[in-house]
């Protein structure tokens, strides 16, 4: 019985199906808002779904020099991990009793797997531009991971626990993290980290459409490309939810809170989309310097304030 419940939670709600649908819808929001910023009309809401179906109908091409198995399996591993991260995060929010000690660390770790799988896939493709993208993706990963860990700890230090249940409980009892100085600073840093995690401009350095022609994605086509796009959609959904859980009181489907949940999520992705549309892409060394410089300083200030109780 338990197994069936877990599988349902993982595959249907709040796991794969729910996450994938919302993730794809979120990419539509991204495209629509971007289009409006560009003074274009933008696609209809079902466009990402149509794209996915279209890609499934396309031929799959594997370069001759590629390690084919690794190349094809990598996006699937990323999908499995992104879904797992989403499922754990949502379950902890909706049914706090399903939370376990240290699940925030587990989610933090699992959220790196989609990026790693992209790196492995690009590396296996054998395309030099893909490999350049992979190297950049890795550098970007450890650049933003440092401030991300520190700001995560600002919440953890205040709550005194790594578990989502206690983090959410603390926030409902003592007010959201965003209500404190350290919380606000941490939130700002978190948005930039999310931007990098979703490889959105100005941190789309691994994909760099103009110079690397897609970078890590360059050799993907057909169904694997559909899965890659799906992963990006899911991460665009999971990462903001992670931020909401850590700093903004979490999400809920109970009564009116469903509205606030949607508003919180839309607010965060709107900020991210606006950053995306108003900035040029930076170089990888600039990105590393940005995350290990100003962002690190900000996150350390947030951590110190959090330890002091502000």
């Amino acid at each position: 019985m338990d197994a069936a419940k877990y599988l349902f939670n993982y595959l249907i709600f709040p796991g794969f199906l729910f996450t994938a649908v919302v993730g794809l819808l979120a990419t539509w929001v991204d495209r629509k808002v971007t289009a409006r910023v560009h003074w274009r009309v933008g696609p209809p809401w079902y466009q990402p779904f149509a794209d996915t179906v279209k890609l499934l109908g396309k031929e799959v091409i594997v370069p001759a020099g590629a390690r084919a198995t690794g190349f094809l399996i990598a996006p699937v591993v990323g999908l499995a991990a992104a879904t797992l991260a989403s499922a754990i995060l949502w379950m902890a929010n909706l049914y706090p009793s399903s939370s376990f000690v240290g699940d925030s660390i587990v989610v933090l770790y699992i959220m790196t797997i989609p990026a790693i799988s992209m790196i492995i896939g690009a590396s296996a493709s054998g395309n030099p531009l893909g490999i350049l993208g992979a190297a950049r993706e890795m550098k970007l990963l450890f650049a933003y991971e440092l401030p991300l860990v520190i700001i995560m700890l600002t919440t953890v230090v205040k709550v005194g626990s790594f578990s989502f249940e206690e983090i959410l409980g603390y926030q409902s009892a003592n007010g959201i993290m965003l209500g404190s100085v350290s919380g606000v600073i941490a939130f700002i840093v978190a948005i930039f980290c999310a931007q990098a995690k979703c490889t959105m401009i100005p941190f789309d350095i691994p994909e760099a459409e103009t110079e690397l022609a897609g970078g890590t994605h360059i050799e993907y086509s057909g169904a694997p490309l559909a899965v890659v796009k799906l992963n990006m959609g899911i991460m665009f959904f999971v990462m903001p939810i992670f931020i909401i859980t850590m700093f903004w009181g979490g999400v809920s489907f109970a009564g009116l809170r469903i509205l606030t949940t949607i508003l919180k999520y839309v607010a965060i992705i709107t900020i991210m989309i606006l950053i995306k549309n108003t900035n040029p892409r930076v170089r990888i060394d600039q990105a590393v310097r940005f995350f290990w410089g100003p962002m690190l300083v900000l996150s350390i200030i947030a951590l110190i304030l959090a330890v002091l109780g502000y």
Binding site: L55, L56, G57, K58, E59, V60, I61, V62, P63, A64, G65, A68, L72, S125, G126, N127, P128, E219, G222, A223, A226
Partner: peptide, 12 residues
């Protein structure tokens, strides 16, 4: 998807 016939391309 159409993964039954994966085309192995010659070069990158």
């Amino acid at each position: 998807g159409k993964t039954k016939h994966v085309r192995i391309d010659e070069n990158v």
